[in-house]
Design a protein around this nucleic acid. Structure first.
Lengths: 123, 123
DNA sequence: ATGAATGTCAACCATGTGGTTTAATAATTT
DNA sequence: AAATTATTAAACCACATGGTTGACATTCAT
């Protein structure tokens, strides 16, 4: 028999990593940071400058991205250089694609059913 | 010249729809609800039953999914039948894929640069 | 007409989020 | 040694989130 918390995982679709990734993506400032980091590495000052909010606020957003492992930081002297990380995004994309797929396959199933009913009616 | 808030849109990558979609996906119970709705329509009672939380809590989760337009509800007598909606997910997937793409193309660019440097060294 | 089933609403609570400001720490520059 | 730069830390605030319970409205079945 499966342990109880494994069952919970199944019923609640738990995945703290996915939680963190999607939550990180749910704020415009953080998507903006990612967009800029996808082009090139940038340190915190560069990242925060265009973000019409205080430096500490921007810094917190970066940390949310780090918790989700969407961003890694290496410290060079007094500057913290941030770099976008690809792996977790791919997991998220996978979830979405799998979801879309079952959705569509069931739409197709429904369409087929409707077709069949229509054919049956006109018979 | 562009109006000021258009500029803000660009700098902050604003998109309330994306905000809502990603936020909706950031909770295990809501992903679970979606997973089940991707198979077939279900009413609130059916949805809430396996979710180890009170009925009103589950109902609130469904409403978060509705705000994000990931779920639509039609009322049939006393039951509220929920159905998964595909479009907004596709927008989110698109964002992720576009992001992944620029990320990878820049990794390739970096790799090319490194190759070039290496070649230069051994010359 | 009663009663059970389905769902909403409102009030409440604890905790998280997103922002601020001010102060402190650490590395560079002058 | 002093000033500047890059960043964290802490305290605070308003509001959102995620959950509960209890009371209410509708609809369906008996």
């Amino acid at each position: 028999m499966m342990p109880a918390d494994t069952l919970n995982h199944m019923v609640l679709d738990r995945s703290p990593e996915l939680d963190r990734v999607f939550h990180a993506l749910a704020h415009p400032a953080r998507r903006e940071i990612l967009r800029r980091l996808s082009d090139r590495e940038q340190n915190l000052s560069e990242l925060s400058a265009p973000l019409q909010m205080s430096f500490p606020a921007a810094s917190k957003h970066v940390r949310v991205l780090e918790r989700a492992k969407l961003v890694r930081r290496r410290i060079v002297g007094r500057t913290h250089v941030c770099r976008a990380e690809g792996r977790p995004i791919k997991r998220a994309t996978l979830w979405l694609e799998r979801y879309c797929q079952t959705l569509e396959s069931n739409f197709q199933r429904l369409d087929a059913l409707l077709e069949e009913l229509k054919a049956h009616d006109t018979k």
